[in-house]
């Protein structure tokens, strides 16, 4: 790859990194804290490419430890450098969606690790406070009869086929969300079983080819669920639900 092509490619890679931070789509791939590093690196890549371009035009020869080395004369790079085109294409042309239920098939199916939560951690104030699925699972894991089972809560996720294993009367589908700790490559799943004693869940089925079906659900965690017996998947007895657009950010952290 010639030096000129390298410069253009670096400007493209840097530009695409800047773009995904500015339009917010970086949240499909990495955690919010990555915004600054990704943006800074985008600017650095564009800057070093422009510096090299200008110095080449003014006839200053490049100077690195590999100056005049044998197998890539005149600052040419090996063919592997072409692979840098792939992420540029993937981010510019084929706007890739965030991970969803498709990730539940492979290694992402394993349950997310719970976070350490005091057993008597009180719920946030208000009627039916909104909790993350990871928070609910962590609370029931700490105490399956704790405060989280005493009031109604509101949770958000996408509908997934049930993996019901234990008791609790899980006659509905699951509500799932993906949790990422660094980037989408380490995504793992967090789930609640949906129990439907009053027959309100008609129409709440997993999304098909058109995409995941996101819902917000109000209900109460059935006391005694979310234990090792049911694989730490608590059962939520549903009292109301409504469809929502894909939330932003799409993952829990």
């Amino acid at each position: 790859m010639t030096r000129d092509t390298q410069h253009v490619l670096l400007v493209l890679v840097g530009g695409v990194l800047i773009k995904i931070v500015l339009d917010g789509s970086y949240l499909r791939y990495v955690r919010p804290w990555s915004a600054t590093p990704v943006l800074v690196v985008g600017v650095v890549l564009v800057a070093v490419a422009l510096v090299a371009l200008v110095r080449d035009l003014r006839g200053r020869s490049p100077s690195t430890g590999d100056h005049g080395h044998d197998h890539h004369p005149e600052g040419r790079a090996g063919p592997a450098a072409w692979l840098l085109v792939l992420p540029v294409l993937a981010l510019l042309l084929v706007v890739l969606p965030a991970l969803g239920s498709g990730a539940l098939a492979g290694f992402g199916a394993r349950a997310a690790p719970t976070v350490a939560t005091p057993a008597d951690e009180p719920l946030p104030p208000g009627e039916a406070p909104a909790l993350g699925l990871l928070d609910v699972v962590s609370r029931t894991s700490a105490d399956p009869h704790g405060p989280v089972t005493e009031r109604e809560i509101t949770v958000t996720g996408f509908v997934a086929p049930s993996v019901a294993t234990g008791a609790g009367g899980a006659d509905g589908p699951d509500l799932a969300r993906l949790v990422i700790s660094c980037c989408a490559a380490d995504a793992s799943a967090v789930r609640l079983h949906l129990a439907d004693p009053s027959g309100r869940l008609a129409g709440v089925v997993p999304g098909g080819a058109e995409g995941d079906r996101w819902v917000t659900i109000r209900g109460r965690v059935v006391a005694g669920t979310g234990t090792p017996a049911d694989g730490h998947v608590p059962t939520l007895s549903v009292t109301a639900w409504w469809p929502i657009a894909t939330p932003d950010p799409v993952y829990e952290y």
Partner: peptide, 22 residues
Amino acid sequence: LDAPTVRTGATVFVAICVQALP
């Protein structure tokens, strides 16, 4: 990318690039 596995793999690939490049 209609195949869920390909789509998931492609997203994971981009995520690794975006995470590792910085």
